[in-house]
Design a protein around this nucleic acid. Structure first.
Length: 766
DNA sequence: GGCCCACGGGG
DNA sequence: GGGTACGTGGGCC
């Protein structure tokens, strides 16, 4: 039988088994069981073999030669059921390695299987669990090539009112659409189970399902005593928890949380810096969604259920449509890194890079360094922070006719060009070095280090693909591949700097950053010599304009050519784009204004970076106003921007405002007793509790500041209890509207009082 | 000015 | 496999 590999796990039930999940060439669901013995390595020291014989769990020992750093050494490969336990028994006497790899990861690495590979399996076939085909493998081998399989993909979205599920919707790629609502939660969950079993998707897509939908579903199923079997193997929904994330897993189906992927791995590629389903859909699909406040949804639930069902279904449809763009990218990343789509879509850059290196090291007979123990990781964390990229402070204000350059894969090309690797750092006996600017570190030139060799492979593959793309060959697939390669290459610097990483190296990270600073500064200097005004620079990018009205394009191209002739190794400066306008905005505290700007491109699209009034603790009125002001300023309509602000002030003062527009949402992060200071949260939590409403960790509410005496928190009231005549207009003008608008307009030299009609210094309607 | 607490996504 | 991130801003005292 041939099947396409999508997912894997392991069980130790009767004997160690790796379970492979996928679909066959007819799209039928497949589970393959393959026995696989766990093992780990120990440095072969005198007497170790004898001692191992006395340890009960040890089943088999093999001698192998592998590289430890640059030296060939003898190791023992020790087969046993629980590598971590056996390692504890021998670690005092010798160094142990690769004892903490999850069994399915070990298996995929050793077999050289990559996700999305087609595998040919021979063995005993039987029916079982919720799979169309179950095979106990006698032999599995990799097949050449093969297309992506036909997968059943289903998106899911839920609606919650008063912390209870009242509605859910699904949309699958066979055209099935359904929204189900009920006051009876148990019934709702039963319907969900039934739909999962009947539609039987291979993949389930959500938007923030890890932290929200499945978390709520799991808790509500418990609360209702409902058995919620969404999986194929009869196991319950479970969460793979890690430090600050948890990942919802449905055995036999691959749950992809699109938000987890977009916010971790795609964020830099997107124009938007807000990763709401609305914004991401707008950018990737060209269509967004209606957004509603919590209060609006509550009202809809009471009186417009059909409309709410439509709203809910639309969210599932958007998630499904996003799969069209994002799944191929996730698959490309999995094909390159060797990590399962479930994992690769949730990893950080650093983790991806590390697993890629683990795989490559195994291929080359190199022992992977161990991840640090807690104390070691803590010690690494306590070192002086590594000095990061160079930031050229922006010229605050509005500028026209802008060109943006950036180094193509700055850190990867630095790592390759200067051979930055833990083994080449200050290598003894080496006479030919690269010397790091302003540091004493030296990297041997005589032999290519492991990390630079791997990064070079990635960069070369990417260059090859880009060549093919230029030749016009099957663009979509190539685009996805080069995206995956780019992500992986860029991840390496972050891995050097990550205290939890196996190949962590303070010196390598410090050196990469030092070279990076050196070359961006050189680019800034050279741009100046070419007649440009440098507006802003950060780490690997440079924003420039010409001091006069000449068009920037021809000069930019000339400069690029000159600059690239000077750069060493594989380093290269790219033209990122041209912009009609750019607004650089100073920071509130401190005087460095990095990472805060808004750009208007030649097609009229606005990119905003680093502005804070996108958060739910700003009211909608202030958030929308800030966006509008940015857009108007970029379009050269300062007067209109000013007028818009004055209008908003006026509307607040004359109470022509819906409460929804000034409601501020926030979330309780702890139980009432644990609040040390009086603030909006503790005040509202007490009120909720007194009214017998939920007020625990995670409870979200909206509030409005009422007029009257006392502190702001004293005057906070739940939004649905405040009437139009009760809100504090002064607060909303002075603490929400003006700060949001002034943040932008002060860069153009306006004074706060100019935003108020009639030259008032401070707004007060009293 | 120092501390406390929140933001991110979802409803 | 996991021993809460990360940088920043508003409100309280």
């Amino acid at each position: 039988m041939k099947f396409c590999l999508l997912d894997a796990d392991y069980s130790l039930d009767e004997r160690p088994n790796v379970r492979l999940f996928g679909v066959d060439d007819k799209g039928m669901s497949v589970m393959v069981l393959d026995s696989f013995e766990p093992y780990f390595y120990a440095l072969d020291k005198a007497g170790l073999k004898e001692r191992l014989k006395k340890i009960k769990d040890v089943r088999k020992v093999e001698s192998v030669g592998m590289f430890l750093g640059v030296k060939q050494k003898k190791f023992l490969r020790i087969f046993c059921e629980r590598p971590s336990d056996v390692r504890d028994a021998v670690k005092a006497k010798t160094d142990c390695f690769e004892y903490s790899l999850n069994l399915y990861k070990r298996y995929l690495i050793d077999k050289k299987f990559y996700p999305l590979d087609w595998l040919d399996v021979k063995g005993k076939e039987r029916k079982g669990l919720g799979f169309s085909r179950v095979v106990e493998a006698a032999n599995i081998k990799k097949m050449p090539g093969g297309k992506a399989p036909a997968l059943k993909i289903m998106a899911l979205d839920i609606e919650v009112i008063d912390e209870k599920i009242v509605m859910f919707s699904v949309a699958d790629n066979a055209g099935y659409r359904e929204a189900v609502s009920s006051e009876n939660e148990k019934e709702l969950l039963e319907r969900m189970r039934e739909i999962f079993q009947r539609r039987d998707p291979d993949m389930v897509a959500t938007y923030n399902g890890d932290q929200f939908d499945f978390d709520v579903i799991s808790r509500r199923a418990d609360a209702n005593g409902a058995k919620l079997l969404l999986s194929r193997d009869g196991s319950p929904l479970y969460f793979r928890k890690s430090m600050w994330t948890s990942a919802a897993k449905i055995k036999g189906r691959v749950h992809i949380d699109l938000f987890a992927f977009v916010s971790r791995l795609m964020s830099q590629q997107l124009q938007s810096e807000v990763f709401t389903l609305d914004e991401v859909s707008r950018e990737l699909l060209g269509r967004g969604k209606e957004t509603h406040s919590m209060e609006q949804l509550e009202r809809m639930w009471k009186s417009e259920r059909e409309r709410m069902e439509k709203y809910c279904l639309n969210d599932s449809e958007l998630a499904l449509a996003l799969c069209g763009n994002l799944l191929p990218q996730i698959f490309a990343l999995s094909r390159i890194s060797g990590q399962l789509p479930f994992d690769s879509s949730r990893m950080t850059f650093g983790a991806l890079s590390e697993w890629y290196l683990v795989r490559k090291a195994a291929e080359k007979g190199i022992m992977s360094p161990n991840p640090p123990h807690y104390a070691e990781a803590q010690a690494r964390r306590e070192r002086v922070p590594i000095k990061g990229g160079y930031v050229k402070e922006p010229l605050a204000g509005l500028h026209s006719n802008i060109a943006v350059f950036d180094f193509r894969s700055l850190y990867p090309s630095v790592i390759v060009s200067f051979n930055i690797s833990p083994e080449t750092l200050n290598e003894k006996g080496c006479e030919n070095y690269n010397e790091v600017p302003a540091f004493k570190h030296r990297f041997c030139k005589e032999r290519t280090g492991f990390v630079p060799a791997m990064v070079r492979e990635i960069l070369e593959k990417r260059a090859e693909i880009k060549k093919k793309l230029k030749a016009g060959k099957s663009a979509a697939l190539q685009e996805q591949q080069q995206f995956g390669l780019k992500i992986l290459a860029n991840a390496t610097y972050g891995m050097f700097a990550n205290p939890n990483a196996r190949w962590y190296s303070y010196e390598c990270a410090e050196s990469s950053a030092a070279y990076g600073r050196h070359y961006i500064q050189q680019a800034i200097t050279e741009a100046g010599k070419s007649g440009f005004v440098a507006l802003y620079g950060d780490t690997d990018s440079l924003f420039v304009k010409l001091p006069d009205e000449r068009n920037v394009k021809t000069d930019a191209k000339k400069f690029l050519k000159r600059m690239n002739a000077k750069l060493p190794g594989v380093m290269e400066l790219d033209l990122q784009g041209f912009y009609r306008k750019g607004l650089f905005i100073p920071q509130k505290s401190g005087n460095v204004a990095k990472k805060r700007y808004a750009l208007l491109d030649e097609k009229g699209a606005v990119t905003v970076r680093g502005l804070e009034a996108v958060r739910r603790d700003w009211c909608d009125l202030a958030k929308n106003l800030q966006r509008e002001v940015i857009r108007l300023v970029l379009e050269g309509r300062e007067k209109d921007a000013l007028e818009t602000v004055r209008n908003a002030v006026n509307r607040v003062a004359t109470r022509q405002i819906a409460i929804d527009e000034i409601a501020i949402s926030t979330q309780l992060s702890r139980p009432l007793e644990q609040y040390k200071t009086k603030n909006v949260h503790s005040v509202i939590a007490r009120k909720l509790k007194e009214a017998g409403k939920p007020a625990g960790e995670g409870t979200i509410f909206s509030y409005v500041i009422k007029k009257g005496a006392g502190s702001i928190s004293d005057r906070a009231e739940l939004a649905d209890k405040v009437g139009k005549d009760d809100y504090d207009a002064d607060y909303y003008v002075n603490n929400q509207i003006l700060p949001a608008a002034f943040r932008i307009l002060q860069t153009l030299g306006y004074k706060q009082e100019e935003l108020l009609a009639g030259g008032l210094k401070k707004f007060s309607h009293g």
